[in-house]
Every structure is written in C-alpha cells, then in structure tokens.
C-alpha cells in the first residue's frame, strides 16, 4: 500500500498531464471539442423530456417549476453519467493499454487513476453547465448544492473499485467489456432516473433501497430538485462499499498483475 502511494506520488505530474491531455484531445479533431461533454447528456435530457414530460410533469414530487421534469432528469443523469463513465473507462483501461503494460516498466495503477481523473473532470464541467441551466430555468441552486462536490469522490470511488475489479477480470475474459453496456442499461432503467421513485410500488421499494445507484441518484434528486439536505445514511453505505470495493480491487489487481501481463 505504501509502495502504491509512493509510486502515484512519483508519477503525479504524469497523472495530471495525462488527465489534461484526455480533456484536450477532445478539441483536437472535433469541431465542437469539449462542448460534447455537455451536449451528449443534455441531448439525452431533451429527448426524454420531449417524449415523457407530458406523461410525467405532474408526477415529479417536491418541485413546482414548469421545467421540474427536466431538472429532475438532469440531476439524475449527472450522478448516473459519473458512475457509468468511471466504470466503463476502468473496465477497458488495461486491455486498451496492453502495449504499454507489456513494454514499459511504470506503475500500472496510474492507468485507472487517469481514467477516473478524466471522468471526474468531465463531470465537473457538466455540473457547472447544469448550474447555469438551473438559473435559466428559474430554479437557482442553494447552498446544499455544495453537497454534490462531496458526492463526486464517493461515486467515483465506488465506480472505480467495481471498475478496476471488472477491468482485471476483463483481461482474462474479454466478454466483460461486451456485457457491461447491457448490464448498465438494465441498471439504468431499474433506477428512478427517467421516472420518479414514487411510481414504484411499495413492495418493490424495499429492494430498490439495496441498489447503491438508487442511493446516490436519490441523494442528487433531494439536493438538486428539492433543495434539501438529505439523510446521509444511504450515501454512507455507498461510501463504505466504495472503500471496500476499492481495497478489494487493489488486492486483486496486485495479485493478478503478473498473470495480466502474460495474457495481454
């Protein structure tokens, strides 16, 4: 563990440089550059809002704003996008960097850290743009919004732990990379992001509380849509799971390391 921290410290400039390059590479070949970080999720919001707002507009609880449903969607997607982007990047990272892993001696743990850093950067930009949009829509953010900044590392840690573990397994069984989008799609629709939680029958709600994604999406909803300071119980559970997953993933990562190089 000490070695790990030391090697990350020694490579800190490389980490910062790589995260910055990931961000910058978006400008290099596309006309709209980094604007896509924002356009992609917002176009999703527009599509859902266009199709579903008439059905659901009256049903989003805790908000009277005309654009209540759009705000609800955006807050849920803000949390979901961070989770799914970190997870997706960590799962692919070892296979994608096979050549460097086999041919250069550098701390391999830097690879997923760079991916997490890049995903968090994208999410912060999306968050900043959403704050502007909330002002425009007449739903100015309160101080409780700062809690989102607390949530970002918790979600990132949770997704990173899960992602690194699955990323290591993906080196041995490449099917993981193929199955992930399907599982994520199912999880997305099992979580109240597009629809409000109150349409879920009470008998299923007890199961929903076991879904960690629901816990942090619900937290975002309460903070952003209802401007509340929510209970931290559910989120603490996610944070604890995040720490446990990350430690487990690091153990697996270290022990499987030599075999990973053989397979890549």
């Amino acid at each position: 563990m000490k070695d790990l921290v030391l090697s990350l410290w020694a490579y800190r400039h490389f980490l910062m440089n790589s995260i910055w390059n990931d961000f910058k590479s978006r400008f290099v070949r596309s006309r709209l550059g980094a604007a896509w970080i924002v356009f992609q999720p917002l176009s999703q919001v527009l599509i859902y809002a266009f199709i579903l707002s008439n059905l659901l507009s009256a049903k989003v609880p805790g908000i009277s704003n005309t654009y209540g449903y759009a705000i609800y969607l955006m807050s849920g997607l803000l949390a979901w996008n961070l989770f799914s982007e970190v997870l997706d990047r960590c799962i692919k990272v070892f296979v994608a960097n096979a050549n460097a892993i086999k041919k250069v001696n550098f701390p391999r743990v830097t690879l997923p850290i760079i991916e997490v850093g890049a995903a968090v950067t994208n999410n912060l930009i999306l968050f900043a743009v959403m704050i502007v949009i909330f002002f425009v829509l007449g739903h100015p953010p309160g101080w409780s919004f700062l809690l989102i900044l607390l949530m970002i590392p918790i979600i990132a840690m949770f997704a990173m732990g899960l992602g690194i573990f699955l990323g290591v397994v993906n080196v041995f069984i490449r099917d993981v990379e193929q199955v992930t989008p399907i599982v994520l799609q199912v999880l997305f629709w099992l979580t109240p992001i597009v629809y409000p939680a109150n349409i879920i029958p009470e008998k299923f709600m007890q199961w929903m509380r076991l879904n960690p994604v629901y816990q942090f999406v619900d937290f975002y909803h309460q903070v952003i849509v209802q401007s509340l300071v929510p209970s931290f119980a559910g989120v603490l559970l996610v944070a604890a799971m995040g720490v446990a997953f990350s430690l487990f993933a690091l153990v697996v990562f270290r022990r499987a390391g030599p075999d990973m190089v053989d397979v890549l």
Binding site: V169, F172, V252, A256, D259
Partner: peptide, 10 residues
C-alpha cells in the same frame, strides 16, 4: 476457474 485465478493470483 478464471475468477478463482484472478482472486488468488494464480
């Protein structure tokens, strides 16, 4: 087997 292997480092 693969999962066992990943978990136990082979």
């Amino acid at each position: 087997n693969t999962l066992v292997k990943v978990g136990t480092g082979g």
